[in-house]
Design a protein around this nucleic acid. Structure first.
Length: 494
RNA sequence: AGCGAGGUAGGGUAGUCUGGAGUGCCCGCCGGGCUCAUAACCCGGAGAUCAGUGGUUCAAAUCCACUCCUCGCUACCA
């Protein structure tokens, strides 16, 4: 019986165009998803956009369009990116979608309220009159509004609060026991320290007037709109039917994995599980916190045009597989990595084309010339394959390590060709060499599926055999297939 | 300031938890081989006080202490 896995990416804000960092997260989530499928699991993946921000209201006003129009426009860019990078998703969820989102968010609020965890209290925050928005101290530049360069006022208003403090001990226990798993360990320790340092209750609403009515109304209080926490985080359950389709919700919840960036780990590993505990819902099993990308060694920021690399532009020149390969190959799973167009070109030309593409090309040329239909012989390359190790890397989220292992097989095949020199062989010896190479390529093709799905499918097609899953990643007694070399897998990028 | 993560050939990474010859991988550089392959592939080589100091140990990149440097976070950043 197949296991089920519900996986989510984070749902980024639509207040700016997607950058290469978003692309990295989508690729990571997709690789995890596709590997689970190779393992025979049934997977549901949610991605989407978070749109209920006051900043959107303001940005729309400046452009003289409605907030919804602004969200539609920006959300489309993210949708173009997930499509362009070949993220296989089941739902593209938008938190401005009243039908699917509002009911669930309000239901979650009510459950927390029924648990006695929501109360009204005076909230004070730094408010910029020009922006008509609250800022956190971190968002300010030298204590001034980044846009107006004015000092925000300390404003007081009545808001609802969530009793986060109540869940301190339970959270600690869940994280320490591993029941709620935070990957990698370093992040887990970071969060444990935060929780041990004590949790304060959090503000979860804003007045209707300040939020201009944009967002999810607080149930039973026409004066208040939900602030980000219950609103945005509930997307993860609303997207699978919480509050609207209980049957589907029960089928997929709890999530197996949330894939998020390090900047939002606190909300996903403290606020979110606390809210779920309050509502009496199961917690996600795991949260995978990835690092960030720098561009050319510099931190990405709106004010630095050098770092404003649009993944959509990159995809005009590079295939999705090429960008996917580069991102995983060059960036470690857990820490920050650097994105550079030079390195992208090198990885594409040197490894995808030079190692993989060239391997397929040279083997298929020899195979076609051989005119054989079935290949058999002594298995000498099978020993290089350590499937257990690859699976271990995947379950530990060491995606770059898993990919390195697969590419090691590719290099092994190229080495083997140079050693046995099949172009000098004939008869049984040639058949044996080709048997080893074709079986290897078939298996490499399957193992590459999570990383470079299009390439994987094309390899299978050239070999004329079924894609298969993990169980097919072992040497069979003979290689059978109808080989057709066709076009090269990759073209050199100049 | 506090908290966190790092510092391994010219660059980038793995190895550190669980100590065992500086061991692996990628890019770059030098030399050679091959001619099946998209000037691709293969082999060899140069290049490192494993940030530093002190300690534990038969043995330290790895464990402990201290120091220096870099980066991140500090309450809606993928």
């Amino acid at each position: 019986m197949p296991r089920r896995a519900y996986i989510t990416t984070s749902i980024p804000y639509v207040n700016a165009a997607p950058h290469v960092g978003h692309a990295l997260e989508f690729v990571q989530a997709d690789i995890i998803r596709r590997f689970r499928e190779l393992s025979g699991d049934e997977v549901f993946l949610l991605t989407g956009t978070d749109e209920n921000s006051l900043k959107n209201v303001r940005a729309a006003e400046l452009l003289k369009i409605t907030t919804q129009e602004l969200c539609d426009r920006n959300s489309k860019l993210f949708r173009d990116l997930v499509d362009g990078i070949n993220l296989k998703y089941d739902v593209f969820f938008r938190s401005s979608d009243k039908k699917s989102h509002f009911a669930g968010a309000q239901r979650l609020w009510e459950l927390c309220d029924q648990a006695g965890d929501i109360y009204k209290k005076e909230y004070s925050g730094l408010y910029c009159v020009g922006c008509e928005a609250f800022y956190t101290e971190g968002e300010l530049e030298d204590g001034l509004c980044p846009e107006h360069k004015t000092r925000p006022e300390l404003v007081h208003e009545e808001n609802y609060f969530f009793k986060l403090s109540k869940y301190e001990k339970r959270l600690l226990k869940l994280i320490e026991s591993g029941e709620f798993e935070i990957i990698p360990k370093g992040r887990r320790n970071e969060i444990l320290n935060l929780v041990k340092g004590g949790l304060e209750d959090i503000s979860i609403s804003r007045s209707v007037s300040r939020s201009k009515g944009w967002g999810v109304p607080v149930p039973g209080d026409p004066e208040q709109i939900m602030y980000v926490w219950i609103d945005a985080l509930s997307s993860y359950i609303n997207g699978i039917g919480f509050g609207t389709d209980e049957k589907n919700f029960k089928k997929w919840w709890p999530a197996d994995l949330h894939v998020i960036g390090k900047g939002i780990s606190r909300f996903h590993t403290i606020y979110w599980p606390a809210i779920l505990l309050s509502a009496g819902l199961d917690l996600p099993r795991r949260v995978f916190v990835h690092g960030y990308l720098t561009v050319g060694g510099e931190k990405m920021s709106k004010s630095n045009p050098k770092t404003a690399v649009s993944p959509l532009d990159v995809l005009k020149k590079y295939k999705a597989d090429e960008l996917r390969y580069y991102m995983i190959r060059d960036a470690p799973s857990f820490e920050d990595g650097d994105f550079s167009l030079v390195a992208l070109k090198d990885r594409t030309n040197k490894e995808l084309l030079g190692d993989l593409g060239n391997l397929v090309s040279r083997v298929l040329t020899i195979a076609e010339k051989s005119k054989l239909r079935s290949y058999t012989g002594k298995n000498v390359l099978g020993g290089d394959l350590d499937l257990g190790r690859i699976e271990k890397h995947f379950s530990a989220m060491e995606l770059h390590e898993a990919l390195e292992d697969v590419m090691g097989l590719v290099r092994g095949c190229n080495r083997y060709i140079n050693e046995v020199e099949p172009w000098k062989l004939s008869g049984k010896q040639l058949e044996e060499a080709l048997y080893n190479l074709l079986e290897s390529i078939r298996i490499i093709g399957i193992l590459l599926y999570p990383f470079v799905p299009d390439t994987s499918k094309r390899i299978c097609k050239k070999l004329g055999c079924e894609m298969g899953n993990l169980q097919d990643c072992k040497f069979r007694d003979s290689f059978k297939g109808s080989i057709e070399k066709g076009e090269h897998l990759f073209k050199k990028v100049e």
